[in-house]
């Protein structure tokens, strides 16, 4: 075949390829006309399930959680002076698109929890990073939100290995179950930095009722249930950490199962 015929064949192939892609595009457009996105089921990610025992609580704190200034974990009269054992659970560890909670798309993170033999009270808070700026939920002032679950098991008598949080900003925190035997936590840790010059308390919320834009304070005795992590503004979030805190040493048969699932919404 001489060159001119090859060139002609090449251009014909280009036209054919472009034509095929147009047929695909038109077919999909027609399909979308027949199946408008508004009538489709919302996209639900596969979710991820975590299992923890008492050793998951790898931090100890006198009352406070990370923020640019010490921020209380609880404000009710019976809990405001309590000390807490903390764990940080990263909720967006699955690959992009297929997976789990990343509030980069409009939507919320549904968290299903199930405690076994919970002693004292467990508190749930959210921490998230957007760019280089960390945010968390407020529990005082306008729009407080958090989830507190009261258990009735007998407290344990020996706590697992914990690190005391003495600083609450510019700190590295190791997620529950993270790290290795070397003791170097840096490769596995999250560096939490709240900018002292900006806010960070107003856009993240916890709620069981999605109609409450700014979330709600939930106090419950239910040992299993669900709540949602929501964002009411600001930039997309890159990383989401769930802070779980308990105010008692947990018994040896304590167990916590968390299932986190990103559920997309229309916007």
């Amino acid at each position: 075949m001489d060159l001119s015929k090859r060139v002609a064949a090449g251009f014909a192939l280009v036209v054919l390829v472009v034509g095929i892609f147009f047929v695909v595009q038109i077919t999909v457009e027609e399909w979308l006309t027949l199946n408008p996105p508004g009538q489709m089921s919302p996209v639900v990610d596969s979710g991820e399930t975590f299992h923890f025992t008492k050793t998951g609580f790898n931090y100890f704190s006198e009352c406070y959680r990370p923020y640019k200034e010490p921020l209380p974990i609880a404000v009710s009269d019976d809990l405001k002076d309590a000390s807490w054992y903390l764990m940080f659970v990263p909720l967006n560890v699955t690959p992009p698109y297929g997976g789990n909670p990343k509030l980069g798309r409009p939507g919320y993170v549904r968290v299903d929890y199930a405690f076994q033999n919970l002693a004292g009270t467990a508190a749930f808070h959210i921490l998230a990073i957007s760019g280089s700026s960390w945010r968390t939920n407020r529990i005082e002032g306008y729009g407080p939100s958090a989830v507190f679950v009261r258990g009735n098991a007998t407290p344990g008598d020996a706590r697992g290995p914990t690190t005391e949080l003495t600083e609450y900003n510019d700190i590295q925190v190791l997620p529950a179950g993270g790290g290795d035997d070397s003791g170097d936590i840096a490769p596995y840790a999250y560096y939490i930095h709240f900018d002292p010059a900006s806010g960070g308390l107003n856009s993240l919320h916890l709620t069981q009722d999605l109609s409450l834009v700014r979330g709600e304070m939930v106090y419950t005795d239910e040992q299993s249930g669900s709540f949602c992590l929501t964002s009411s503004g600001g930039n997309d979030l890159d990383e989401v950490l769930l802070l779980v805190a308990v105010d008692e040493v947990q018994p040896d048969d304590f167990a916590l199962e968390l299932k986190a699932q990103f559920i997309a919404t229309d916007g």
């Binding site: 892609f21 047929v23 595009q25 077919t27």
Partner: peptide
């Protein structure tokens, strides 16, 4: 992916 495939190809 397919919704803009034709235009993208062009």
């Amino acid at each position: 992916v397919a919704i803009g495939a034709g235009i993208s190809a062009v």
